[in-house]
Amino acid sequence: MAKVIYSATASLDGFIAGPGGDMSWLTEHLGGPNEAADRLLARLGAILVGRVTYGGDDPNAGTDAEGAFGGQYDGPVVVLTHRPPDPAPAGVEFATDLTTAVERAKALAGERDVNVLGADIAAQCLDAGLLDEVLLFFAPVFLGDGTPVFRRSGGPRVRLERLPGETEHWYRVVRRPAP
């Protein structure tokens, strides 16, 4: 069954985008071998993204590396939004509620996994009990402000367990037993 995995590259002070959604800071930190990213990419069957991230800044815009995973991902994308465009671009589907978006992404992924891009949708998945894993990469930079890895105020503490045999920042979300 498809797992739902949130992956992101963050600054050392915990931001995945700079002020105003700026991603240009990431350009100098991309490229080069990254075995964990390669393993994740090999497992992916679909991407689930929020509208802000979908329409946001791409540090590789206008280059051969434009798009998810430096342009290496070529598969279905599901966008969660309240304002889907008509018609949808090829290879992109739009959903207006979280449950439908996750179910559709999982169906498109088949036996492979779903990668969540975007802090807001990742927090929504976490709060709804739909997030299975978190994989974080860190770039050696302090941004000082921007979009945090998780933007969620309040709510219960969420425990994560490091996945055995994986990079030190790849975690399983520990689910609380039902009461």
Score class of each variant (00 low, 15 high):
M1D: 07
M1I: 08
M1V: 10
A2Q: 07
V4M: 07
S7K: 03
A8Y: 05
A10N: 05
S11Q: 03
S11H: 00
L12S: 06
D13A: 00
G14N: 00
F15M: 02
P19A: 15
G20K: 10
G20E: 14
G21W: 01
D22K: 10
S24W: 02
S24R: 12
E28K: 13
H29G: 00
H29D: 01
P33C: 04
N34G: 06
E35K: 12
A36Y: 02
A36E: 15
R39K: 14
A42F: 11
L44F: 04
G45R: 09
A46P: 14
I47Y: 04
L48H: 10
V49K: 02
G50L: 03
G50Q: 02
R51L: 05
G55P: 03
G55F: 02
G55R: 13
G56F: 03
G56V: 07
D58M: 07
N60T: 12
N60H: 13
G62S: 08
T63N: 07
D64M: 05
D64G: 15
A65G: 06
E66P: 04
G70H: 06
G71L: 10
Y73R: 05
Y73W: 10
D74H: 15
D74K: 14
V77H: 06
V78Q: 09
R83D: 15
P84K: 14
P85M: 08
P85R: 12
D86L: 07
P87Y: 08
P87R: 04
A88S: 14
V92N: 10
F94D: 07
D97M: 06
L98G: 05
L98Q: 10
A101I: 07
R104D: 04
R104T: 14
A107F: 06
A109F: 05
G110A: 09
D113Y: 09
V114H: 12
V114S: 11
N115W: 12
V116G: 03
G118H: 03
G118F: 01
A119N: 06
A122D: 01
Q124H: 05
Q124M: 10
L126T: 00
D127V: 02
D127S: 13
A128F: 07
A128T: 11
L130T: 01
L131S: 02
L131E: 02
L131H: 02
D132A: 11
L135I: 09
L136T: 04
F142W: 11
G144W: 00
G144H: 02
G146Y: 00
T147K: 14
P148I: 00
R151W: 05
R151A: 15
G154H: 06
G155W: 04
R157P: 11
R159E: 15
R159Q: 12
L160S: 04
L163P: 02
P164T: 13
P164N: 12
G165Y: 06
E166W: 08
T167R: 09
E168C: 09
H169A: 13
Y171V: 01
Y171Q: 04
R172H: 08
V173R: 01
V174K: 11
R175H: 12
R176F: 07
P177H: 08
